[in-house]
């Protein structure tokens, strides 16, 4: 295996990586910056970079006009709720697939993943009608169900790849030791899979937190999370870039902080166990 890098190659790769990183980061940086500007400065051309009158006005006004904490609370409930419900189903499903595979297990996994390739808007009408008829519109329960089902394939996949790495012998040893199936899963499998479960949960919290299509379409106020909070600042009242930026910053801040502190688990999770 040739794995040596010339210094020049190494440097150019680093520079390239940094450029890509900065490109991705720039909009977020600009959003945060804009949230501290006045509306006037926010749209001034040429844009001012650091030398403007820093103000917290936007944040005050955003909180005053719409209750940030109510939206944030909904976001937390939806993200955590859908992840916990998903975990119960995904753990049992992944256990079956990883430790009792059949000829069709791989097909089933692929089929599950393929559902993620369908554009959500394709099922908007039926789901909307079901929600309307069952009185689930604008309820947290309804949204938790949708978000959980939406992310279930990914949770199963991730847990499956983690479980695959656990030697079956150990579970069999537990069986010989007299553990019933629930005990085998709770006392033996789950503790060994903690890193995998942590990254699975984390990724799903983030996916559910960022989910905008269903949360915007199926809620109005009671169950509306931060995505709706941001959306409410976009068009109808003219363009308020600074306030929109402040709202967005508030919406992404919590998840950004969580993401920052759990980078390692996230990276492991996102590689889907592809690299050992």
């Amino acid at each position: 295996m040739e794995n040596k890098q010339t210094p020049l190659g190494y440097i150019s790769f680093s520079v390239f990586a940094w450029i890509v990183g900065l490109l991705i980061f720039f909009p977020i940086f600009w959003m945060v910056l804009t949230s501290f500007k006045t509306e006037l400065e926010a749209v001034s051309i040429p844009p001012s970079f650091i030398s403007f009158d820093w103000t917290l006005e936007n944040y005050a006004e955003v909180q005053e006009r719409s209750n940030y904490f109510k939206f944030a609370m909904n976001s937390v409930i939806l993200a955590v709720g859908s992840t916990l419900v998903g975990l119960v189903f995904a753990v049992t499903c992944a256990w079956a697939m990883a430790f009792n595979p059949t000829k069709r297990t791989k097909d089933a996994l692929l089929w599950m993943l393929s559902t993620k390739m369908m554009p959500p808007v394709g099922v908007l009408v039926p789901i909307y009608l079901v929600f309307r008829d069952w009185g689930l519109l604008d309820t947290r329960f309804g949204l938790i169900m949708v978000l959980f089902l939406m992310n279930l394939p990914i949770m199963v996949w991730m847990l499956y790849t983690y479980f695959k790495e656990i030697p079956t012998d150990i579970l069999e040893a537990a069986r010989m030791d007299g553990a019933t199936l629930p005990k085998e899963i709770i006392f033996v499998l789950l503790p060994m899979a903690v890193p995998g479960i942590a990254s699975t949960m984390l990724l799903n919290v983030i996916l559910a937190w960022n989910e905008a299509f269903w949360t915007l379409n199926l809620t109005t106020s009671d169950a509306a999370p931060l995505t709706a909070f941001i959306a409410s600042y976009s068009s109808p009242e003219g363009l308020f870039w600074a306030k929109l930026s402040a709202a967005s910053t508030l919406a992404v801040a919590p998840i950004l902080v969580i993401g920052w502190f759990s980078q390692k688990q996230l990276v492991r999770g996102l590689t889907f166990g592809a690299v050992k």
């Binding site: 012998d169 150990i170 069999e172 040893a173 537990a174 010989m176 030791d177 033996v188």
Partner: peptide, 15 residues
């Protein structure tokens, strides 16, 4: 578990 047997695995299979 009902058979009252114990097994020692090649891989040890410790928890």
């Amino acid at each position: 578990a009902k058979r009252g047997l114990s097994m020692v695995f090649q891989s040890y299979a410790l928890y």
